Structure formats: C-alpha cells, structure tokens
Amino acid sequence: MSQIKPIPTPTDITADWLAQHLGWNVSGVSAKAVGTGQVGATYRFSLTDPDPDAAQKASLIGKFMSEDPVSRATGIAQLSYVREVKFYQNYGNTKPLPIPTARYAVVDEATHDFALLMDDFPSHRPGNQLTPATLEEAKLAMGAAASIHAAWWGDKGLDTHAWLNGSQAASGMNVDGLFEMLWPAFCARYGDQINDQIRATGEAYLGRINDWITQRPGPRCLTHGDFRPDNMLFLEGDPAHPIVIVDWQTAGVGNGATDIAYYLGTALTPEMRRTHEMSLINLWIDHLEKAGVPQADTQNLWDIYRRDALAGFLMGVLASMIVAQTPRGDAMFLAMCARAAAMVSDHRSFELI
C-alpha cells in the first residue's frame, strides 16, 4: 500500500512548503478565501517573486475540506472529495482538456481529508448561476463539453472506477428514497417561492427517478455531472483558454447529453433555451464529430437530451437540502429548479421514462 502524502491545510501552504513539494522558489505566499462553492473550501494563494524562467504561476487555487460541518459531512458521504482528487490523478492531467492543471492532488480515503492545488486563472471571470448565460458563453460551454466527452468516448475503463458517479463498479444509490425524503423538506423550506411547474415536476417524478437513472442509454463517456456557470471561468480573448471547467466533485460516467441538458436547462432562461437549444446541441455534436466521435453515435442524442431535462432539477432539490443553507444558495437552487422544470414541461420528458 502506497504511503499517503502529508495533507496540508491552507495555513501550511508557505514558501517552504512550495519549495519542498513542488520545487518552486518564491519569497512569500498569501492566502485568501474565494469562490461560492458550498461543499469545499477554496483559497487563492498569491505567490511573491515566482521564478520568471520556470513554469511557475503568480497564484494557485487550493481546495480543501469544507469548514462547515454540514457541507463537510455531505462531501464525505457523497465521496465528493475523493472523487475530485481521483479525477485529477487518473484523468485530469492526462489529455488536453479545458480544465486547470493540478500541481498537487492528495486524499486520505479513510478520512476523506484532501488537498488540491491547481493553476489559477485570475484574469478569467467566473460564471454566475443567478445571471443567465450569454449566447457566447453557451457556445463556449458546448465546445468544452464536447472535448471532455470525446476524450474518453466509449472507453470501457471508465466503468472500472467505483469512485465515478454512475460507474458499473459503483454501489447503486436509492435516489428515489432520497428524493422522497427531501422533497417535502424542499417544499416546506421554499413554500410559495415554488411555482406550479416546480411542484408538478417534483410530484411527477416521485418513485420514478431510479427508473430514469437505470434506463439511461449509451454510448458512455466521462461526464462532469454539475455542468453549469458557477463551475466555469471565461476569458473570450484568450486563444488557449477561453473557457475553463472547474469543480470535478461530481465527475461520472454516462451519456454526455445529460451534461448538455443540465447546462441548457439551468444556465439559460426558458425563453433563451427555446430559441437556441437546437443550434447549441448541433454545435456540441459538430464538435464531438470533429473530435472523432462516430456519426453513428450521435444520431439519438436529441432524445436523450430531452429525457434528461430532469438532471438540473434533481440537483437543485437534493443539493439544496444537504449543504449549508445560504441566501445565494437558496436563490441559485430555486433558479435551477424553475428553469429545469420549464424544460421538463416543454419536452414532456416524463413520458420518455
């Protein structure tokens, strides 16, 4: 059994630590909490006097266990911390992807304590779930998704990892039981903020979610699982990295159309989605085919997209009940549910189970 590397806390990331563990020579390090994540704690480490002749950055992003006990317990129970580190160890740095390069990734699978240090993109602007995505952002998201999905399209090795969501090697979860337990609490918490479409969608899927999960067709590929604006960074003028996809705590294996349904159903207003979804899905498929995905594998992706309109709604309900409650989180989860419920209604998704 390999020795687990020491797992640093944010205060451990000093100039001496960087010299010892990364071989980087800097004169100082300052840390500042950043981001809006509710399951992990994220910091920006600004580095003083990095070596201009080496592959050193002026800053790094570090992720650690949440300091909130509720969110930390959720991260442990859902394998979120283990999953993200293992994604970077097994996949993240192995092919060109629109993601940060991980410089240090270690996890203790017994305690789930972890540390992840990645390249920072300080000039990029973060996406915002509360502000509908622009058409340009949506186009960039389609290209990024295609590059991720195509990289391991049809790779049977994905299903050998028990830590990947949806893997055939993973233990099945009774999502129906979880939803039936949390749906009444969701309704009680948000009361009259829940519109008729949200309520009708939740009621329609009671007792049917396990069927929806088990009936998902292939072909299978690596999926992000939480593909939405809060997990994206943008700088349209950057030719190398116009978009960067972060937060791989929900990485999984499944059909890439689920990521697309999740994004278009939660990131765009219903009106914008109705206007642009066909052209955006076709753009995603064009990128897949240019990346080598056979045309035979792209023929039924529209129907899978329609069927998986539930994805964003399900995340909005379940996540809101199992992480620390915040005003921004409440607004975000309600927006996700409202937009996704409209998509479910538009496409009569329930009938496709």
Rank of each mutant, 00 (worst) to 15 (best):
S2L: 08
Q3T: 12
D16A: 15
Q20A: 11
G23D: 03
N25T: 13
V29L: 04
G37D: 05
G40V: 14
R44L: 10
R44H: 08
L47K: 14
A55K: 13
Q56K: 09
F64P: 00
P69K: 14
E84V: 04
V85E: 03
K86W: 06
F87A: 06
N90M: 06
T94V: 09
K95C: 02
P98R: 09
I99C: 06
I99R: 12
P100L: 08
T101P: 01
A102I: 10
T111H: 07
D119Q: 12
D120W: 08
P126Y: 02
A141T: 09
M142G: 03
G143P: 02
A150W: 07
A169T: 10
S171A: 15
F179T: 10
L182Y: 13
A188T: 11
Q193I: 05
Q197C: 07
I213G: 06
Q215E: 08
P217E: 14
G218K: 12
C221D: 03
R228T: 01
P229F: 00
D230N: 15
G237I: 13
D247F: 01
A251P: 00
T258R: 15
L268M: 12
M272S: 11
R273H: 01
I281G: 02
A296E: 08
Y305T: 12
D308M: 15
A311G: 04
F313I: 13
S320G: 04
S320L: 00
Q325Y: 08
T326P: 00
A335L: 14
F350H: 13
